[in-house]
Write a protein that binds this DNA or RNA. Structure first.
Length: 973
DNA sequence: GCAAGGACGTA
DNA sequence: GTACGTCCTTGCA
C-alpha cells in the first residue's frame, strides 16, 4: 500500500510564480494556476508508475482562517501579504480540479495542510503503508522516516536534476545536518524568516545542527546552555530560550488532527471522463483535454462543459455537485470565491461598451512601404500574439483575384496597410505598371509568412476563408484563424452578415463602402486602380473594425453558450471549404457546348410552336405576357394569385392547363425547361471555368443559411439538374480528369432518420433498423395495404406525406402537392398522426418552443432563430410554425454532414487513402480519387459519414450512406 | 443601373 | 408545406 499526499497549496503557489498569467479565453477569468495545477497533478500521477504507483491519494489544501499557531505566536506568518487578486478565484477552482481528477481534496479549518498531511502520514505508516508527500516544503522534512516508510518528493523542475527527487533521511541530513527527528529542534533554533518563526537570533542552520548534535535535543541544550563556551552564543540561548520553545511549537506539525475521512476513503479511483472533461471544458483547457482524451481513450465531445463552472455558467458555483459526499471533506465555498462581476454575460456586455466607445480614426492608420516599418508591424503582431487581417484583391473570386494590399490591425484603433499591387492609372494590364514605392509582394509575404503560419498567433478575419484561399495561392497556409462572420453566425444566424452590417449593428459605425471608393456599375474600378491613400483608409478600417468586432463578439460565445457550436461546427469547417473551393471540379466544355446547341434548337422549335398556338408572337420568357394570352386573350380559367395581382403561370398551373387540353401550356413548360437548362447551366457554366486551373470553383457560403446548411454560388453547384433526362446530361459533363474517378456518397433518407430520432418514433426507427422501404412502410401503415404489390400511386402519396411532415405539413400544401382535395389531404394527415402520434407531439413541442423562446435547436445545439414567431400576422405565424418544425430536422442533418466533412480529410489521411473532397450538396459529398483506388476510398468515406454524429450524439436510428464511383457525376450518383 | 418579382434548378 | 441561388423580365431611377 502506498499513500501519496500532495501539498495542494504549495502546488498552487508554485504554479502562480512559475507560470505566465493566463486568462480564460471567453471571459477573462484568471486560470493560469488552475491549468498549471492540473498539469502538475496529472504529471505526478503519470510519473509515479510501477512500484511507485500510489494505491491511495489525496490533495491537501490550507483552509482559510486562523490556526492554532496564531494563538501561540501572533506574529506567525504575519508579514505574509494577502494572496494576489488573480489568485483568489483560482483557489476553489483547484479544489474542483482535484475532484475532476477523481482525487479527494481535503482541507480543514483551523489546520494547515502540513498538519493534515502529517496526520495522514502517521496513520498510514502505522498501518504499514509506504507514504510519499509531494512537497518541497522543508517544514515537512520532520516527517521523513529513516526506514523510508515516509519520504518527501520534490517535483520542482531544476535544471540538470532529475524531474523527481526523493527526499529521505540522507537528504534531510544534507539540508539540516541532523536526522529527521531532530529537524524541529534545529528549526526551533534557527527559525524561519519566511513563516516569521523567530528562533534564536544569531543562530543559523549550521550552528543549530552543531548544538543539537552535541546536546541531543532542544530541551537538553537549553537546560545546559550555561556550558556553552562561546559567550555570545551562550548568552543568546539563555536569553531567548522561551523564543526557541515557542518556535519549536510553531514548526512542530500536529499529527493528531481529527480528520474525518478514513484512510480507506483515499483509495485511488480511475479518472472518470464524466467528471474530468466537464471541468476541463469549462476551464477551456483544450490542450490538456486533448492530451487526456488520448490517454484515457475517451471522447471529450461526449461531455458538455460543467454548467456551474463554465463561462456564462447558468448554475451558481455553490451548486457544483460534489463527486462523492463522503469524500468531500473540503467544503470549497465555490460561489463565494468566484470574483463577482466576472460573469461571462457581464464581461461580454462590458467589452461591447468598451469597444464601442473607442472612436474610429482614419488618420491613425499607417501605410507601410519600407522593410523597417513592415518589420515593426510584424514585431507588434508577434508581441500581441494575434492580428486582424484583411486582404485586398483585384476581384471577388478568391481563385482568380490577385493581391493588391494587406491590412493588419493588432490594436483597436490602429491599422497598417501594406500596398503591394496598386497599378498605375491607365495601365490596366498591371504587371510592370505598378505604382512606385510599394514593397514587392513576395518580400512582404515572406516577411509575414512566419506570423501567418505561426500556430501560436491567431489570425482574425471577416470571412477568413477568402483570405485563406488568396494567400494559399501565394503559398501561404494561414492558420489558426478566427472568423468574426462565423462567430456572428454561430450566435445570431445569418441575420448580420457582412462587415458593414456588423459594424453598423454592434459598433454603430458606418464603414466605407467599396462603391464609395470605386464607383459602381460598369465604371467601377478594381481595387488595384484605387489611390493607395484611399485604399489604405478603406482597408485598414476593415481590419480595425474586424478586430473590434472580434472583441465584441467572441466573449458572447461563452456568455451565450455557443462556444461548442462555433469551435466544433463552424471554425474548423472554413479551412476544409477553402480547400474544396481551391480544388474545383472538371467540367467538360464540349459536352456543354453540344448541349447548348441542342437545347437552343429545340427551344426555338417550341417557341415557334407556342407563337403559332397563341396566334401571335410574344416574349415567352415573360410570365406577364404569357398570362395575358392564356387568361386574357384565350379566356382560360386560372387563379390570379401572386401577391402582386399578376396571373400565375407557374409550372403547376400550366401542367394543370395541359391536362385540361391546352397544348400551349405544355409547349411553354417544355420551352421553359430547355431555356432554363441552357441559360443557367450549359451556357453559364463554361464561363466559370478558371483559365489557370481549367476547373470550376464554386464558392460555399458557410454563414448564410438559417438552418446551418451551406449554400453554393458563383456558380451554384448545389442545384445541378438531376430529375429530367436532359438535366442529367448536364450532370454528366462534370467529370473526373484522366486517371481519376468521381465518387459520390450520399446519405440515405437522412432527414427522415433524423426525424425518427428527434421525435422518437419507434415504428419509423424499426423500419430503418430493418432496412425497409420507408415510404412503402408508411403507406402500408396508413392505408392498411401490404407492401408486396403496392400500387405506385399509394407509395407516392405516402412519400409526399413523409416529405410534408419534414416541411411542417399543412392540409393546403399536401393537397396542392398531390392534386387532391384539401379535405382528403386533411384526412391523410389525421391518419398519419394517429398512426405515429409522436410526430404530433414533436410538432407541437417545436411550435410551443419557438413561441416561447424565439428559436428552436438542432441536436448539436445550433439555435435557429425566428424573431417573428409571435407575429400579429396569422400567415406569418403559420409560416414560422412550419419552419420551426423543419429547422431542427434540416439543421441536424446539416450539422451531421458538417461533422463528416471536418473529419473526412484526417480520416482519409490516416487510412492512407488518397481522395480529394470536391463538393457538398446537402446530403451528398463528391470526391475525386485515383482510378482503381475507389474500393479502398469508399469504405473510409462511408464510415466517416455514417459515424459523423457520434460521439456527440448517439442516434437511435442507423445512418446509411450509398456511394458509387464513375467517370462522371451523373453515373456516380 | 438596380431591385423586385416570377419562375425553376437542387436537397 | 422547408431551405437555397440564378436567370429573366419588368418597372423605376
Amino acid at each position: 500500500m502506498h499513500l501519496l499526499l500532495v501539498d495542494g497549496s504549495g502546488y498552487i503557489f508554485r504554479a502562480f510564480h512559475a507560470l505566465p498569467p493566463l486568462s480564460r479565453k471567453s471571459d477573462g477569468l484568471p486560470v493560469g494556476c488552475v491549468q498549471g495545477f492540473c498539469n502538475m497533478l496529472f504529471k505526478l500521477t503519470q510519473d509515479l508508475e510501477g512500484d511507485e504507483a500510489p494505491t491511495h491519494m489525496a490533495v491537501i489544501f490550507d483552509a482559510k482562517g486562523k490556526t492554532f499557531r496564531d494563538d501561540i505566536y501572533d506574529q506567525y506568518k504575519a508579514q505574509r501579504p494577502p494572496p494576489p487578486e488573480e489568485l483568489v478565484p483560482q483557489f476553489p477552482l483547484t479544489r474542483a480540479a482535484t475532484r475532476a481528477f477523481s482525487i479527494p481534496a481535503i482541507e480543514m479549518e483551523g489546520w494547515e495542510a502540513d498538519d493534515i498531511m502529517a496526520t495522514y502520514a502517521c496513520l498510514a505508516r502505522d498501518r504499514g503503508f509506504k507514504v510519499t508527500i509531494a512537497s518541497s516544503d522543508k517544514d515537512l522534512m520532520q516527517m521523513v522516516e529513516p526506514d523510508g516508510s515516509i519520504r518527501l518528493l520534490d517535483t520542482i523542475p531544476r535544471p540538470g536534476q532529475p524531474p523527481l527527487r526523493w527526499i529521505g533521511a540522507e537528504e534531510v541530513f544534507a539540508r539540516f545536518g541532523v536526522t529527521p527527528d531532530k529537524v524541529i529542534d534545529v528549526q526551533a533554533l534557527c527559525g524561519d524568516s519566511v513563516d516569521n518563526v523567530p528562533g534564536v537570533p544569531g543562530i543559523g542552520v549550521k550552528t543549530a545542527a552543531e548544538l543539537i548534535n552535541a546536546y541531543g535535543d532542544l530541551e537538553t541544550l537549553l537546560a545546559r546552555a550555561e556550558e556553552i563556551r562561546q559567550p555570545a552564543r551562550r548568552q543568546r540561548l539563555i536569553e531567548h530560550a522561551e523564543l526557541a520553545r515557542i518556535s519549536k511549537r510553531l514548526v512542530t506539525l500536529e499529527r493528531q488532527v481529527p480528520v474525518t475521512l478514513d484512510l480507506d476513503a483515499l483509495a485511488r479511483e480511475p479518472i472518470s471522463p464524466a467528471s474530468l472533461f466537464p471541468f476541463l471544458k469549462a476551464m477551456e483547457f483544450n490542450t490538456i483535454t486533448r492530451r487526456l482524451a488520448t490517454l484515457l481513450e475517451a471522447d471529450p465531445d461526449l461531455f458538455e462543459a460543467d454548467p456551474a463552472l463554465r463561462a456564462g455558467g447558468d448554475a451558481p458555483l455553490a451548486g457544483v455537485p460534489q463527486k462523492s459526499t463522503s469524500l468531500s471533506v473540503a467544503k470549497a465555498k465555490l460561489a463565494a470565491n468566484v470574483v463577482p462581476g466576472t460573469g461571462p454575460a457581464r464581461h461580454a456586455a462590458e467589452e461591447h461598451a468598451r469597444v464601442k466607445a473607442i472612436p474610429v480614426d482614419h488618420g491613425a492608420y499607417e501605410i507601410v512601404t519600407t522593410p523597417d516599418r513592415l518589420a515593426a508591424c510584424i514585431a507588434r503582431i508577434v508581441d500581441k500574439g494575434r492580428v486582424a487581417i484583411d486582404t485586398e484583391t483585384t476581384g471577388l473570386d478568391p481563385q482568380q483575384a490577385d493581391l493588391v494590399g494587406i491590412c493588419l490591425s493588432t490594436e483597436i484603433g490602429e491599422g497598417c496597410y501594406i500596398p503591394v499591387g496598386h497599378a498605375k492609372p491607365g495601365d490596366l494590364l498591371g504587371g510592370d505598371g505598378l505604382v512606385e514605392g510599394q514593397l514587392p509582394v513576395r518580400e512582404v509575404l515572406e516577411a509575414l509568412r512566419p506570423v501567418l503560419e505561426d500556430p501560436s498567433i491567431l489570425k482574425i478575419g471577416q470571412n477568413v476563408k477568402y483570405d485563406m484561399e488568396v494567400l494559399f495561392r501565394y503559398g501561404i497556409v494561414m492558420t489558426p484563424a478566427d472568423d468574426t462572420m462565423l462567430i456572428s453566425y454561430a450566435l445570431d444566424g445569418p441575420r448580420y452578415n457582412g462587415l458593414d452590417i456588423l459594424a453598423e449593428h454592434w459598433l454603430s459605425h458606418k464603414t466605407f463602402t467599396f462603391a464609395e471608393l470605386a464607383g459602381t456599375g460598369k465604371a467601377q474600378k478594381s481595387f488595384d486602380q484605387l489611390e493607395i491613400a484611399a485604399a489604405a483608409r478603406y482597408g485598414a478600417e476593415d481590419a480595425d473594425i474586424t478586430l473590434r468586432l472580434w472583441h465584441v463578439l467572441k466573449p458572447r460565445l461563452a456568455a451565450e453558450n455557443a462556444t461548442t457550436l462555433y469551435e466544433t461546427l463552424e471554425r474548423p469547417l472554413a479551412p476544409v471549404l477553402a480547400r474544396m473551393e481551391a480544388r474545383g471540379i472538371t467540367v467538360d466544355r464540349q459536352i456543354l457546348a453540344r448541349l447548348s446547341g441542342d437545347f437552343a434548337q429545340r427551344a426555338a422549335a417550341f417557341e415557334a410552336e407556342a407563337h403559332a398556338l397563341a396566334g401571335e408572337s410574344f416574349n415567352l420568357g415573360s410570365p406577364k405576357q404569357l398570362g395575358d394570352i392564356l387568361f386574357g386573350k384565350m379566356g382560360l380559367e386560372g387563379g390570379t394569385k401572386t401577391k402582386t395581382g399578376a396571373w400565375s403561370t407557374g409550372a403547376d398551373v400550366l401542367e394543370d392547363l395541359a391536362l385540361k387540353g391546352v397544348p400551349l401550356a405544355r409547349t411553354v413548360v417544355d420551352w421553359r425547361q430547355l431555356t432554363k437548362l441552357k441559360g443557367t447551366y450549359t451556357d453559364a457554366l463554361p464561363t466559370y471555368i478558371n483559365p489557370r486551373t481549367g476547373r470550376v470553383h464554386t464558392s460555399y457560403s458557410q454563414a448564410s443559411v438559417l438552418t446551418g446548411r451551406l449554400s453554393s454560388n458563383d456558380p451554384n453547384l448545389q442545384n445541378i439538374p438531376v430529375r429530367t433526362e436532359d438535366g442529367r446530361k448536364i450532370r454528366s459533363a462534370f467529370i473526373a480528369p484522366p486517371g481519376k474517378v468521381l465518387v459520390s456518397a450520399d446519405y440515405s433518407q437522412i432527414e427522415l432518420r433524423v426525424l425518427a430520432h428527434i421525435a422518437d418514433i419507434q415504428a419509423l426507427k424499426d423500419a430503418f433498423e430493418e432496412g425497409l422501404d420507408i415510404h412503402a412502410m408508411t403507406a402500408s401503415e396508413m392505408f392498411k395495404v401490404p407492401i408486396e404489390g403496392m400500387p405506385s400511386e399509394v407509395r407516392r402519396r405516402a412519400k409526399a406525406i413523409n416529405f410534408g411532415i419534414i416541411y411542417g405539413i399543412s392540409a393546403f400544401g399536401l393537397a396542392n402537392q398531390l392534386g387532391i382535395a384539401r379535405s382528403e389531404a386533411g384526412d391523410y394527415i389525421k391518419t398519419y398522426f394517429e398512426r405515429f402520434p409522436g410526430i404530433r407531439d414533436y410538432m407541437d413541442a417545436q411550435k410551443t418552443r419557438v413561441k416561447a423562446d424565439g428559436f428552436v435547436t438542432t441536436i448539436f445545439g445550433r439555435k435557429v432563430q425566428f424573431p417573428n414567431a409571435n407575429s400579429g400576422n396569422p400567415s406569418e405565424r403559420a409560416f414560422v410554425e412550419r419552419a420551426s418544425i423543419n429547422a431542427p430536422i434540416q439543421g441536424s442533418a446539416a450539422d451531421i454532414i458538417r461533422r463528416a466533412m471536418i473529419r473526412m480529410e484526417p480520416e482519409l489521411h490516416k487510412a492512407g487513402v488518397e481522395a480529394d473532397m470536391l463538393l457538398q450538396v446537402h446530403d451528398e459529398l463528391i470526391f475525386e480519387v485515383p482510378e482503381g483506388t475507389e474500393d479502398r476510398a469508399i469504405p473510409v468515406i462511408r464510415k466517416v459519414m455514417e459515424g459523423a454524429a457520434e460521439p456527440a450524439v448517439r442516434l437511435t436510428v442507423p445512418i446509411r450512406v450509398d456511394a458509387h464511383a464513375a467517370r462522371n457525376w451523373d453515373e456516380a450518383h
